[in-house]
């Protein structure tokens, strides 16, 4: 798993979890869309750090030490920004 530096992500600061490269650590900046209540219940909340572990049909990310698999549609609703 490659570890991309935050500096590489600075170019586009607002992107969705789908657009993040595998292995990147990012901060959740906003949730928007019909699935955001469910995402909040699972722990996807603003300001939390998340690491994307794999991409694909469903992507796996690590959030506060827990691995979660979410669909691409849900990941599209998670807006993230590079870690400050």
């Amino acid at each position: 798993m490659s570890h991309t530096h935050a500096a590489d992500l600075q170019i586009d600061s607002a992107m969705t979890l789908n657009q993040v490269g595998v292995g990147c650590d990012v901060r959740i900046s906003q949730l928007s869309g019909p699935g955001c209540d469910r995402l909040r219940d699972l722990g996807f909340c603003e300001q939390l750090l998340v690491r994307k572990l794999s991409a694909g049909r469903n992507l796996i990310c690590s959030l506060c030490g827990t691995r979660l698999a979410i669909s691409r549609e849900l990941a599209e609703q998670v807006v993230v920004s590079p870690m400050a």
Binding site: L68, S71, L74
Partner: peptide
């Protein structure tokens, strides 16, 4: 009718 998505916790 409502949106449902695949969401799964992968426990350690």
């Amino acid at each position: 009718t409502g949106a449902t998505h695949f969401l799964l916790e992968l426990p350690p």
